[in-house]
């Protein structure tokens, strides 16, 4: 059963533990700027919204990569960047319409969520269960993707 990240802004307090955990797990530093999950702040509404890659089926990043450096992880369904293959051309960062592939200037490579190989550090670190790692069909993820695709009208098709 594939699992995915369930994000619930109404439970998020904006503590940024997820960003700290992600950057530490992935980059070895406590630095939210290096995090692959990001908490966005909506001052007017008093809301914090965690957001990261939904591992979408369209995989714009993967299809746009000119050197085959982004691959599907068969175990988790995540789309993973192969660091030794990535040349740092950044085309995936403009191809991803969700803005969830970013360029890391320190390494000259791109970074994106890879679900930590199936044990995401952000979910473990979240004290309020605003980020949980659950069965994909419980997250409404398909609905969410469908909505995003429909509202974004970015799938080729009539």
């Amino acid at each position: 059963m594939l699992r995915s990240l369930k994000l619930e802004p109404e439970k998020c307090t904006g503590c940024l533990q997820c960003e700290m955990a992600c950057s530490y797990e992935q980059e070895g530093v406590f630095n939210p700027a290096k995090s692959r999950i990001k908490v966005f702040t909506f001052h007017h509404e008093g809301v914090f919204a965690p957001y990261t890659c939904t591992q979408c089926d369209e995989a714009w990043c993967m299809h746009a990569c000119p050197v085959d450096a982004i691959v599907v992880n068969a175990a988790t369904g995540s789309k993973d960047v192969l660091n030794d293959v990535c040349v740092g051309c950044k085309v995936c960062t403009i191809a991803c319409p969700f803005g969830t592939v970013n360029y890391n200037q320190d390494t000259g490579k791109v970074i994106k969520c890879d679900l930590c190989g199936g044990d995401p550090a952000c979910a473990k670190a979240c004290p309020t269960e605003a980020i949980t790692y659950v069965d994909a069909d419980q997250t409404g993820l398909e609905r969410m993707r469908a909505y995003a695709a429909q509202s974004a009208q970015i799938s080729p098709g009539s």
Partner: peptide, 10 residues
């Protein structure tokens, strides 16, 4: 409303 659950609050 890219995050499914947030339509009520954003």
């Amino acid at each position: 409303r890219a995050i499914g659950a947030n339509r009520r609050i954003l």
